[in-house]
Design a protein around this nucleic acid. Structure first.
Length: 861
RNA sequence: GCCUGGGUGGCGGAAUUGGUAGACGCAAGGGACUUAAAAUCCCUCGGUCCUCGCGGCUGUGCGGGUUCGAUUCCCGCCCCAGGCACCA
């Protein structure tokens, strides 16, 4: 029989079959154990990229595997459909964001279906639909009622290119996370979610997420940034008021010689008011405010300040301390004011040197003596307190507690805790987002839209000019409304919500995706499916999306719409897909198809092979999934993504590697097809007879492979080693001398091996395996066949190789029965010809026997 | 600067609890089949030395240590990637 492996044909055939039969449509079944597998849903940019292929393949393997293990698997897919690229397309090309988004979704859905992913498409959702965001608006109203959503005027991060506000989390090294523009500052009235109300729970639960990678939890903990310290009050020298500071180093308070206030802090102008320095201070403050974020975070940014012609008193020493406004003090951390201890803080040291301010050493290190005249930098390590009144001679760390108590006793402070985490600013001055359901009335102020008036639907026929601000703010039919409270003319809120709000609960919505009754989540269904058992996505969301989702889950829990504390039990963060870059001296970076035999196709000059980097359009080192599917098929694309490296590591793209993956599938196909006529009528070996020789070995290998593949998938998601193991089994089948056509026993063993290969590969390459399964005469849907189990007795070796070492070096190997006694084995080791020769005449100091592994004989000399 | 990861053949990667380093794949070389090539199937493949053997030595970023034994544990250093970065 000669049937060719034609991926394009069989893949389409089975994809159609799965869809028509509704194989992957699921519903709640209290009698079965559920498994909720979720991959991060994509932004519908128009085309899937290799990163998606990898992410969704990893998820699909686990989903299909769990299904074969008997779980009721929920595996949904949807679209993170709001966001700026749609609006930019509207401005640049005149396509409405909705049209653009839906066309992209249609195209990407086709691409995902062509990959053969086992999604329940009946649950598909797009966050830009009113059926979705209406519930988000409802939750917003509830959050407003509870004070969890509030409006506040504040300085915000402003991206001049996107013309919108960015959350702190969305500013990366002073640049916009999305477009890379320099981020500036603006003073605006903004909506916030009070994520800080849950900060302790968010922090505490980090320790209750054993299924999350340590580094993600570390990043979140650092982001939350809890620090223990002390609030201390410094009275003004003229006795009018006091200045409060937060410090984690109250042990150094006796060395505080001046006071610093953030330049933007209102206190600065208050203190300078009416003084000769007022004009100079105002100039300084204006200058600092104008400087953009990037400047202020750069390394070369010099510490600067201006004296406010005012003094306060050190509460423990009574020393008169000059007050300065400074550019490097953060206005929105702690109290915005800092006690400066130049001897033990590097920043304060630099500031003191520049403005010639006094230094007092209060911590002496154990190994040297500090002298304020010769110090070239602050001493920030441990030591013994000096110049610290009653605390002299104490270890500085031990004094922390004592000094905090002292401050409390004299009524000048108390122990406190500070967090780095700020509330989540969710206002965006953009059109393509979920409208914030609020009305602004001149008389009543900010008034929520009544629940029964939801959803506030995004109007369609607005104008996209590309000019600053939101199109909604210029569109009267949306803007103009009446106040729900007093009935007078009023304006709608035109800000829309940050798209991270939609992605903070889409996993809940998947549980009851078509539920159209308040509150959009069917509690019974959500209770059945949530939490997500396994969440899979890119490490780039380690902070933003994952922290917001955790917060939103807790909010919804407290509203009683769901019953879990944490949304994702296990998290797998997959690595990036990378590829080497190619560069022509004349034409710059080249796409792979612009290079032929090391030459640029345009100018024939040799191209330079550059660094391997994350695939990106700007570096042109991209591989088009459509091309891959066309050339090799979806199964090859899938198996290559899994085989090239374990999921959490970066994957380096290799065209030869893809060839190799295809060859393996073709090789597997060939051996099964070769055997087709012979094993077509055979039943798999049932274990009812004794096997010997090659057949026994093949069957052992078969059962060992089941064991290996099962644990690789189940315990570690190490698909690369699982695939290696199946490759070995296929190689073993090739090695088996071809049995005679009438050798029923041998053929039944071969059949068992063939079926095992198909089943083990089924979650990884579902199309070729469905086809082979059918070819060998099986009729049931492969997706629902039970995962094979191995027989430990069959899988165990009856002889094992024992390594014999002399002084830790391998000198020989012996083969012994698996159940041989240790004493017998050491005796055999000593008797081994080569060992005996080498230990002859030497004194044996020690013999170590590691069961089933090795014997190490330690001899003298 | 701080916090995470990581560094193993020509390459991607194995080695799951301190116990045979280099599974599997790619590339390379050789053989079979073929008029020939492709495809396929089989074999070899870390380095080095010789007496060419089921040989010796060496080898998991570098230097030390613990141990009968270290890719694995400890100390110090170098390099790479990611995150944070004036958080008082």
């Amino acid at each position: 029989m000669d049937i060719k492996y034609t991926p394009a044909e069989i893949e389409l055939k089975w994809q159609t079959h799965w869809q028509e039969k509704g194989i992957f449509t699921v519903s709640e079944d209290p009698g079965r154990k559920k498994y909720y597998l979720l991959e991060m849903f994509p932004y519908p940019s128009g085309r899937i990229h290799i990163g998606h292929v990898r992410n969704y393949t990893i998820g699909d393997v686990v989903a299909r595997y769990k299904r074969m293990k008997g779980f009721n698997v929920l595996h949904p897919m949807g679209w993170d459909a709001f966001g700026m690229p749609a609006e930019n397309a509207a401005i640049e090309r005149g396509i409405h964001p909705s049209v653009w988004t839906h066309e992209n979704i249609d195209n990407m859905r086709k691409q995902l279906k062509r990959m053969g992913f086992s999604y329940d498409w009946d649950r598909e959702l797009a966050t830009c639909e009113p059926e979705y965001y209406r519930w988000e608006q409802l939750f917003f109203l509830w959050m407003y009622e509870k004070g969890l959503a509030y409006k506040k005027s504040s300085t915000v991060n402003w991206c001049p290119k996107c013309e919108t506000v960015l959350a702190n989390e969305q500013v990366e090294a002073g640049l916009c996370w999305r477009c890379g523009s320099e981020v500036g500052e603006k003073f605006l009235s903004q909506w916030f979610f009070r994520i800080t109300a849950y900060v302790e729970e968010l922090l505490a639960c980090c320790d209750k997420l054993p299924g999350w990678p340590e580094r993600v939890l570390t990043m979140q903990k650092n982001w939350i940034g809890k620090s223990f310290g002390c609030e201390a009050a410094f009275p003004m020298a003229n006795g009018t008021r006091e200045i409060k500071v937060f410090t984690t180093r109250q042990d150094t308070i006796f060395g505080a010689t001046f006071m610093l206030v953030a330049a933007e802090h209102p206190l600065v102008m208050e203190l300078a008011a009416g003084k000769p320095c007022e004009e100079a201070v105002r100039e300084f403050v204006e200058k600092i405010k104008k400087q953009d974020k990037k400047m202020r975070t750069s390394e070369y940014y010099e510490k600067e300040g201006v004296f406010l012609d005012t003094y306060c008193l050190n509460p423990v020493t009574g020393r008169k301390m000059p007050i300065y406004a400074a550019n490097f003090v953060l206005a929105d951390y702690g109290t915005g004011c800092v006690m400066a201890v130049p001897t033990h803080d590097q920043r304060d040291f630099e500031f003191a040197k520049k403005y010639d301010l006094p230094l007092i050493v209060v911590i002496q290190p154990h190994d040297k003596a500090l002298n304020v005249k010769t110090m070239t930098e602050a001493y920030i390590d441990e030591g013994i307190l000096v110049n610290s009144g009653p605390f002299d001679g104490m270890e500085n760390l031990k004094a922390q507690e004592a000094i905090a108590a002292h401050l409390e006793k004299i009524g000048r402070g108390k122990k406190t805790v500070q967090y780095r985490l700020r509330d989540w600013g969710i206002s965006r001055q953009r059109y393509w987002g979920a409208p914030i359901p609020m009305v602004l009335c001149d008389d009543c102020g900010t008034v929520p839209v009544p629940e029964q008036d939801l959803p506030v639907i995004l109007p369609v026929d607005v104008e996209f000019t590309g000019e600053g601000g939101s199109p909604l703010a210029r569109y009267a039919p949306f803007l103009e409304t009446t106040c729900p409270r007093c009935g007078k003319a009023a304006r709608r809120e035109t800000d829309t919500m940050d798209t991270f709000v939609e992605s903070s609960w889409y996993f809940d919505r998947f549980c009851s995706a078509r539920h159209d009754a308040r509150p959009g989540l069917d509690r019974a269904k959500v209770d059945y499916w949530m939490p997500v058992d396994q969440y899979i996505g890119g490490i780039e969301h380690a902070i933003l999306h994952l922290l917001y989702s955790r917060f939103y889950t807790k909010v919804l829990r407290d509203f009683g719409v769901l019953g879990v504390d944490e949304p994702f039990t296990n998290l797998l963060t997959q690595g990036m897909v990378c590829k080497e870059t190619t560069r022509c001296p004349e034409h710059g970076y080249l796409f792979p198809e612009e290079v032929r035999e090391g030459m640029c196709t345009q100018c024939q000059k040799p191209v330079a092979i550059g660094k391997t980097e994350k695939m990106s359009k700007s570096l042109k080192n991209v591989v088009d999934p459509d091309y891959l599917i066309q050339a090799y098929g979806a199964d090859t694309a899938r198996i290559f993504c899994l085989f090239a490296s374990p999921p959490e590591k970066d994957l380096e793209w290799s065209d030869q590697g893809v060839d190799g993956s295809f060859r393996f599938l073709a090789r597997t196909w060939r051996i099964v097809v070769d055997y087709l006529e012979m094993i077509g009528g055979a039943a798999p070996f049932a274990g009812d007879r004794e096997l010997e020789g090659d057949l026994k070995a093949l069957r052992r290998k078969t059962h060992q492979t089941i064991r290996k593949v099962t644990s690789d998938i189940e315990d570690r998601f190490h698909f690369n080693t699982a695939i290696s193991a199946v490759m070995e089994l296929v190689n073993a089948l090739y090695q088996l001398p071809r049995p005679a056509a009438n050798d029923a026993l041998a053929l039944s063993v071969v059949r068992e091996t063939v079926e095992t290969i198909i089943l083990l590969l089924a979650p990884i390459v579902p199309h070729i395996t469905e086809e082979l399964w059918q070819l060998i005469g099986r009729r049931e849907a492969l997706a629902d066949v039970a995962w094979p189990v191995f027989d430990p007795a069959v899988a165990s070796e009856e002889v094992i190789t024992i390594v014999i070492q002399i002084n830790g070096k391998v000198r020989s190997r012996i083969t012994v029965p698996a159940d041989e006694e240790g004493e017998q084995i050491t005796a055999l080791a000593r008797a081994d010809e080569r060992i005996a020769a080498q230990i002859a005449g030497k004194r044996i100091l020690k013999e170590i026997y590691v069961p089933k592994k090795l014997v190490n004989i330690v001899v003298q000399g």
